[in-house]
């Protein structure tokens, strides 16, 4: 598989997991969205958990990229769940007048996997 961007996307059972740990500048953001779509196609994953616990701030530019990624995943038949948003990030986004309407959210990676019905039993 050819992947263009620096953000790794892991396959765990039938779900994908990715952690955003770098600034989503324009070129990286576009590569990330394409990588997500290619991985969904290649693996047949039913969903993707996007972990943003490493992001200390999410501006409307990054929020738009994340919401877009969710919409793109949905068009290919996969559910995208955004997890790990820090309290101060959530407060800031809502104060700015933005809510991540286009993407599902969960508290953390574990809850995200549960939401997708992918948390391993036992």
């Amino acid at each position: 598989m050819t992947r263009a961007g620096p953000i790794p996307i892991l396959r765990v059972a039938d779900v994908l997991l990715t952690t955003i740990h770098v600034d989503l500048q324009d070129t990286i953001a576009a590569a990330f969205q394409e990588d997500v779509l290619l991985e969904i196609e290649a693996t047949g994953a039913k969903g993707i958990v996007i972990d943003i616990s490493g992001l200390e701030e999410v501006d409307t530019h990054v929020a738009r990229i994340l919401a877009e990624t969710g919409s793109m995943a949905r068009l290919t038949g996969a559910r995208a769940v955004l997890v790990g948003m820090r309290p101060e990030v959530a407060a800031t986004l809502v104060r700015m007048g933005y809510a991540m309407g286009a993407i599902e959210t969960s508290l953390d990676v574990e809850e995200g996997f549960r939401l997708l019905g992918a948390w391993p039993k036992g």
């Binding site: 701030e57 501006d59 407060a91 700015m96």
Partner: peptide
């Protein structure tokens, strides 16, 4: 943390 996020997010918007 809330004030830091507010200031840095505003900075990010305006710098962009």
């Amino acid at each position: 943390a809330f004030a830091c996020a507010a200031l840095t997010t505003a900075a990010s918007e305006l710098a962009r």
